[in-house]
Design a protein around this nucleic acid. Structure first.
Length: 277
DNA sequence: GGGCCTGTTTCATG
DNA sequence: ACATGAAACAGGCC
């Protein structure tokens, strides 16, 4: 579930809470979550956290001594700050303790679709999962986006979900952005007009910004939580996602659910009409 | 207890 | 190379 607004909310929470803190020890409860660099974890003690960054849907936590923790949260991943005395939640895979800080940082992922890489700064530069990412969805320029989309012959929604095309969008925010730009999710990318592409680019930007302000989306009161264990609020502002059969806020037609690129897709058939060109 | 759903990666095929 | 589809991952839910 975490798309870039959720990851960004987590990033900000971590930056506020643990930036500059010195690690005292780490616990690896489920080593298989660590896809590379498990051996580097023994260097963590006595290192401070020097930055907390986001790359697409990845969290990059940098430490002194050129150490980097790269985390993808998959669908159900969380980073929770819990009092040191709290019992570990089920499905906790990695725990980081800090000197002089009353809380521990727990990486938790029930479905285990996420992963962790531990690398040095040099290793970071050739981590495939980061190298193959397209430009961040929040950083698109008009020219760049126009050129990129028209160069491809694909349905627009699966293209938006392709992290090697642009990074950061998942199912929720691509549907919301296409609705805002009034574009049908199956529209072929190369048939879109420059004016439509620019409204799509701006719709993506606005949607992601509003979602970050709302602290991300939590759909089934379980799924996404920020570092303080709180739910997001953007699900209250969703216009199409998860609203099958409900009325479009703009025109009153019923929102439809279809499958596009094998993914559930919600849209308004009147506001987002099929258009050949 | 089986089938479905979720997002992403990976593999196979056109 | 590019597009597309299926399978795999794991657990929660009905």
């Amino acid at each position: 579930m975490p798309e870039s607004p959720e990851v960004e909310t987590i990033r900000r929470g971590l930056e506020r809470a643990v930036l500059g803190l010195k690690i005292s020890k780490t616990e690896v409860l489920f080593p298989a979550m660590i896809k590379s660099g498990l051996n580097l974890i023994r260097r963590f003690p006595r290192k401070r956290i020097t930055s907390v960054e986001r790359v697409g849907k990845h969290l990059v936590i940098k430490l002194e001594g050129k150490l980097c923790l790269v985390i993808h949260l998959g669908m159900s991943g969380k980073m929770l700050l819990l009092p040191k005395s709290s019992p570990l939640p089920k499905h906790t895979h990695l725990v980081i303790h800090f000197r002089e800080f009353a809380e521990k940082l727990c990486h938790n992922d029930p479905r285990r679709f996420g992963y962790v890489h531990i690398v040095t700064s040099d290793g970071l530069r050739d981590l495939n999962c980061l190298l193959k990412l397209g430009p961040d969805a929040t950083q698109l320029t008009k020219k760049m986006f126009d050129r990129m989309v028209k160069a491809r012959h694909r349905m627009i929604k699966p293209l938006l979900l392709d992290q090697s095309f642009i990074a950061g969008l998942g199912n929720i925010y691509s549907d919301e952005s296409l609705y805002k730009a009034k574009i049908h999710p199956r529209r072929l990318s190369h048939t879109l007009r420059s004016s439509q592409l620019d409204s799509l680019r701006l719709a993506i930007r606005t949607t992601l910004r509003q979602a970050i302000v709302a602290g991300g989306s939590s759909l089934n009161d379980e799924t996404y939580l920020n570092v303080d264990g709180e739910l997001g609020r953007f699900q209250l502002q969703l216009r199409v996602y998860g609203r099958e059969g409900e009325r479009c806020f703009h025109c009153g037609r019923k929102i439809r659910k279809i499958i596009v690129g094998s993914r559930s897709t919600y849209f308004c058939p009147r506001c987002q009409p099929v258009q050949k060109r």
